[in-house]
């Protein structure tokens, strides 16, 4: 069984909420799901908001997939924001020397939607 990650449309933007655990087997599925959702959404130009408040652990592999997915979404013309990272996750990534440079971040979904603004 492949757990699916819900992708919603909120105020013209795509909102992906990652819950629980992004296992090694699910993480590539996540990237594919997000990219195909953007593809299906062609013609609109809302942003992409990835909510990771449900992730208790983010190792460098998952962090890299998140950063790559954000970069790909940007290449596809989507303003992309990752929001809701937990304090302990941020501290761990930084201690490991992984700063997620180039990924735009926000406190929570509200803050993230504020950053994305109104779709052009």
């Amino acid at each position: 069984m492949t757990p699916t990650i819900p992708i919603l449309r909120v105020r013209g933007h795509l909102l992906v909420s990652v819950q629980g655990e992004l296992g090694d087997d699910v993480v590539e599925q996540f990237q594919n799901d997000v990219l195909s959702a953007i593809e299906r959404d062609r013609g609109r130009d809302g942003g992409l908001l990835v909510d990771i408040s449900g992730l208790e652990v983010v190792d460098t592999y998952v962090a890299r997939v998140l950063a790559d997915t954000a970069a790909m979404a940007r290449l596809m013309g989507r303003h992309t924001v990752v929001c809701g990272m937990r304090p302990e996750v941020a501290a761990t990534l930084v201690q490991m020397g992984y700063m997620l440079d180039g990924v735009e971040t926000a406190l929570d979904v509200d803050d993230g939607l504020d950053r994305l603004g109104l779709p052009r």
Binding site: D24, E56, D59, Y61, R86, E88, T92, Q95
Partner: peptide, 17 residues
């Protein structure tokens, strides 16, 4: 605590991978 727990859990993930 939450910080130490996240640290060791992440290390477990990195090293087992």
């Amino acid at each position: 605590d939450a910080f130490a727990s996240a640290a060791i859990t992440t290390a477990a993930s990195e090293l087992s991978r």
